[in-house]
Amino acid sequence: MRVFPVYAPKLIVKHARIFLTGVIWVKDLGRLEFEKGRFLLPRKSLPKVKQAILELNELIEAQN
Rank of each mutant, 00 (worst) to 15 (best):
E61Y: 06
L56R: 01
Q63V: 12
E58Y: 12
M1V: 15
L56Q: 00
I60E: 03
K10P: 12
Q63I: 13
I18Q: 12
V6N: 04
R2M: 15
F39T: 03
Q63E: 14
P9I: 03
K44L: 06
M1P: 15
P5M: 15
E55H: 08
S45N: 11
W25L: 13
L54Y: 11
R38G: 06
N64Y: 04
I60F: 08
F34P: 02
I53R: 00
Q51L: 12
F39R: 04
L46M: 11
L46D: 07
V49R: 06
I18W: 12
P47T: 11
K10G: 14
V3N: 14
L56D: 00
K50Y: 07
L11I: 07
F34C: 04
L41E: 08
K27N: 15
G37C: 10
K36V: 05
S45G: 08
K14W: 10
L54D: 07
E35L: 11
D28Y: 14
R38Q: 07
F39V: 02
I60H: 04
G37H: 03
L46W: 14
E55G: 04
V6W: 12
G22M: 04
H15E: 03
V23H: 11
L20M: 11
K27P: 14
K36Q: 11
L46R: 15
E61G: 07
I12W: 00
V6C: 15
L41W: 07
L40V: 11
L20H: 07
G22Q: 01
K14D: 13
F19Q: 12
W25K: 12
A52C: 09
V3S: 13
I24R: 00
P5R: 14
G22D: 02
P42C: 10
K27A: 14
L46K: 15
K36H: 14
D28E: 10
K44G: 06
E61W: 07
V49L: 12
I53G: 00
D28S: 13
E58K: 09
I60M: 12
E35Y: 10
G37R: 04
V13R: 02
V13Y: 03
R2I: 15
G22V: 04
E35H: 12
G37N: 04
I60Q: 05
I18A: 06
K27T: 15
P42I: 05
A16D: 00
P42N: 07
I60L: 10
L29S: 00
P5A: 13
P5V: 13
I24T: 01
L59N: 04
L32N: 03
I18G: 06
L56H: 00
R31Y: 11
R43H: 06
E55K: 07
K44V: 05
S45M: 13
F4R: 00
Q63F: 08
I53M: 03
